[in-house]
Computed example of a mutant assay.
Amino acid sequence: MSTTAEPPLSLTYSPCPNDTFVFHAWTHGLLPGTPPVTVDYADIDITNGRAERGEGDLLKVSYAVLPWVWEEYALLPCGGALGRGCGPLVLTADGGAASPAELAGRTVAVPSERSTAYLLFRLWAGELVPGGVGEVRVLPFAEIMPAVRDGRVDAGLVIHEARFTYQTYGLRQLADLGEYWESSTGHPIPLGAIVARRSLGEERLAAVTEAIRASVRHAWADPAASREHVLAHAQEMDPAVADAHIGLYVNEFTEDLGPAGYAAIDALLGRAATAGLVPATGRLTPVS
């Protein structure tokens, strides 16, 4: 059934290549009969904040923010970022901390205090940084590596394409939090989630879910269709880096979280709740 008579839904996600690749077909009218949407691009710290304030119908947020928005927003089973070998990195400059213990009392830049990256960092630091770090400074993603390079912070917590580019800033990897998570739990890494306002109702939530899955499949079937759009929003990213970014973050979990995906999310939020870092949510219920 066509939903074109309904008012457009607001959809907010980052300008990163994985998001623009995934949502291109839906947001550019290439999927007839799907719900109409209006798009806004925003950094993860902004989208997390909007979700906490209840602003927007559909948002790409950090899995770490779910416990604070769970009553108003449902987790959709597709469209997000979850996988292996794609975790956040802790970076330092030459002459900086050479071990986790040396971060004690130091200043660390992070992309969002509600981000999954920061939640993983807190779990990791709680085990390996005696007494904890000093100041935590929230910076836009694009400013973190320059801040570490220039000595304005002692370390930086980075995500996404920084995995491929940090060496160009003269930085080195102190820790791979994905390796930490996978080795200690066996689960893939939950990074970014797509949430939808529960008040949309079951029928519209189902239509949105199918639209996202159709958009993912279209992107895989015809990657050239979105390429110009992806590169236009990639902040002068090298095309090869954009391709690597998409290849890493758009995977089988993007189309369907499945049992392994939900188990990973439950493990992350359960461990964090036990550590007193987030409110308890209970087990997540898929929207299908």
Rank of each mutant, 00 (worst) to 15 (best):
L89F: 01
G95P: 02
R137Q: 11
L91F: 11
L119H: 14
E52Y: 12
L30D: 08
A42M: 05
N48Q: 09
P36G: 02
L31F: 10
D94K: 04
V65P: 12
P130H: 08
A98Y: 13
V61Q: 01
V37F: 02
G105F: 08
V138T: 06
G85P: 05
N48P: 12
Y41E: 00
P130C: 08
R122G: 10
G134M: 10
C78H: 00
E55S: 12
S115L: 09
G80M: 00
E135G: 14
A93G: 08
A142C: 08
G132Y: 15
A74T: 13
R114S: 15
R106A: 04
G85M: 00
S99N: 07
A98N: 10
A101L: 05
P67C: 01
G134L: 09
P77Q: 04
W124L: 01
G151Q: 02
G131Q: 02
E52V: 14
T34G: 10
G83M: 00
Y63R: 02
V61T: 01
G134R: 09
A74F: 14
D43V: 15
V61W: 03
P100W: 10
R53H: 09
D45I: 09
G54T: 06
Y41G: 00
V69I: 11
A98I: 11
L30R: 14
W70S: 15
L66Q: 11
G95V: 00
K60W: 12
E55T: 14
E55Q: 14
P88R: 06
S99E: 12
S62W: 07
V61L: 01
T92S: 14
G33P: 09
V110A: 11
V148I: 07
G29A: 10
Y63F: 13
K60P: 12
G132A: 13
A42D: 06
V110I: 15
G83D: 02
R137F: 05
R122M: 12
A51P: 05
L120P: 02
V136R: 00
A104G: 04
L75N: 11
P67E: 03
G96P: 11
G54D: 07
G151V: 03
L139R: 01
A147T: 04
P67Q: 01
L31G: 09
P140I: 06
R50C: 05
D40F: 11
G96M: 09
W70L: 13
G151A: 01
V37S: 03
E135Y: 13
K60R: 15
W70Y: 15
